[in-house]
């Protein structure tokens, strides 16, 4: 992936959630984290599709955990940021910050 490829807003948020969850980032926990932070429901299919899309782009690594009975004997699929993913997230954050620079006060005054 080249650097001109932007992160979508939702992709951005998903990557942040994975970063925050650290070793405990798998489908269900990521969705919970997103719902907690965003304060609204997150579509199940949107979340999973985005995860797989980010993995395909090389932003995420995946590994399978151990099967557990409360999951019907199924294992968790854990996600972790790759260096490329971290770089993309940082890049996106930086772009956003610089865009934001100076607007905070404008919003205050305009309100």
């Amino acid at each position: 992936m080249n650097k001109t490829s932007y992160l979508g807003e939702f992709e951005h948020v998903v990557l942040l959630a994975i970063l925050r969850l650290g070793d405990e980032a798998y489908g269900r926990s990521i969705r919970e984290e997103l719902e907690l932070r965003a304060g609204r429901e997150v579509s199940r299919s949107a979340a999973y599709i985005t995860l797989e899309r980010l993995a395909k782009k090389g932003y995420l690594d995946t590994r399978m955990g151990e099967p557990s009975p409360e999951r019907g004997g199924k294992a968790k699929r854990y996600y972790r940021l790759t260096p490329v993913g971290r770089e993309a997230l940082r890049e996106a954050g930086r772009a956003l910050m610089s865009l934001w620079a100076g607007y905070e006060s404008l919003l205050e005054e305009g309100a």
Partner: peptide, 18 residues
Amino acid sequence: RDAEVWEGLLGDLDEEYA
């Protein structure tokens, strides 16, 4: 198609229901 994605999804669904 991807077996791992599938397994993860099924597990998550069970967990969510629980």
